[in-house]
Amino acid sequence: MSTLSDDARRGFGDIWPAMLAAIPIGLLLGALAAGKGLSPLETMVMSTLVFAGGAQFAAIELWATPAPIGALVFSTLLINARHVLMSASLLPKLQGFSRWQTLAGLYYMADENWALAEKRARTHRLTPAYWFGMVVPFVSCWIATSTLGAVVGAALGDPRRFGADFAFTALFIALVAAFWKGRVTFWTVAAAGAASALTYRFAGPPWHVLVGALCGLAAAWIAAGFAGAAEPAPESAPP
């Protein structure tokens, strides 16, 4: 018989490697936020309320004083759009959750804990204890490390001195590699990069994000059409 604390311990046992990997990333986020003028408290509030690594890095990159709210919200929406499909896939597996547990649990659904929950759901019933056993330490660790990074980063001074301003660009390049799916991704990246750089030159920020992203999606749609011609199209299931 699996008890509440057994399942919570299993959740922690599954999440801790992802948690360790996130420690330097959280420190880096905090240090870069400090470089853009965010206070440690502002960084802590952002990590607590938003909890979305990719979107937070993009937000810090776009950050200015005063904060460009429209651009920040739009970039957050675009980067997190994948969560729509992730939650649609996870929800049928949350049968043991009350309505309130579902709504609270999804608040902190990130790539890592989503993937681990999907994996667990293949062999076991997902319990709230397992989910929150992953989420509580993972989220706490992210909040603590990003806040600590902001405190330390503010003491270090101008990030350009050690090339830390370029860390974003390098980090995003590494993240793109993690999403790599061959030819379609190549055309996506080429179109998004060229369109964004040109828009930045001739129209200025924040339009480069919108134009670049839309050109990248259009390129993926076109490239997938050429790939789709080679293989039979799957039947779309009726609702």
Binding site: S75, F172, K181, V184, H208, V209, G212, W221
Partner: peptide
């Protein structure tokens, strides 16, 4: 939810497209 394969490909391309669009000016 039933996306066509091309729409699915465009949806999957959202994260890299957005990430590249954000860093292209700096790169």
């Amino acid at each position: 939810l039933s996306l066509s394969p091309r729409a699915q490909a465009a949806f999957d391309a959202i994260p890299p497209a957005v990430l590249v669009a954000v860093i292209a000016p700096s790169a």
